[in-house]
Amino acid sequence: MKYAYFPGCVTPLRENSYELSARRVLEKLGVELVELEGANCCGFFLDAVDHLSSIVLAARNLCLAEDIGCHIITLCPTCSGHFTRVKAELSENPKLMNDVNRVLSSVNRRFIGSSEVKHIARVLVEDVGVEAIKKTVTKPLTRLRVAPHYGCHIMKPSTEIRFDSPENPRLLDSLIEATGVKCVNYMEKRMCCGAPVMGVDLKLSIEVVREKLRSIKKEKADAIVTICPFCHTQFDLNQSRIEEEYGETYEIPVLHYTQLLGLAQGYEPDDLGLYENRVMVDDLLSLI
């Protein structure tokens, strides 16, 4: 199994332990990664300013994968979500497709639409399979209880993304359970983490994630598990900020799913960048 790895922005610049742990677990699962030379931002962050710009940026990335004849894997659900929506829009709108290709011809590229795009969780569920993941688990983490955070773009808008069920998501739970870990249910499981408004209104953004943290703490989860680098930053980096600002204590470690799976596959914490996480993981590691 071979995929072109699309790095995006947040992972390589802020969440390197996600990339490190993802590379490790994918290797163990026999998924080979090809680098996408010269890739840019997926384009999503320009969508609010100019829709067409966000489309041409996405299309250029997709062209790079088409050139090497590979499907794309992303670690960020916002990237895969944006690509998927852009692909759908282009395939439904031949005039837009023409316009975009006219722009791309200025850099000698042409978008066809032959590369599929999948987030890593989707590759794990659909291509690798939960049973195959279980076979790589050498150290089941049966003493842990964790709170899964799905994030929004992994499945919404479902009309285009068509993965799992936004009103009753199950697939991350099943990936977590494959490592022997129990998932806890919590009140705000389906809610956004608030990260996207961090730059516009930090206080509001933090209030959103604080509500999630409160609801996770109530269930006494040992950790939070994320599959989005931006959600991860919000839970992990801003947790101490909330503790300070509101005089509350959470101290809930936040793990990328790939770090959790890596531990269950027998990797050492260092191999997975676990000591780079901002909320200390020592107590959690003593449970495994």
Partner: peptide, 29 residues
């Protein structure tokens, strides 16, 4: 970031083809 990546055994941050990005964005608003 690159120093941190090197410590972790990761390759440097993959570089963006900035010229191409600038060029295609010349054609939008």
């Amino acid at each position: 970031v690159n120093e941190m990546r090197e410590d972790m055994g990761l390759p440097p941050v993959p570089s963006v083809n900035r010229e191409e990005v600038k060029k295609i964005l010349e054609y939008t608003k």
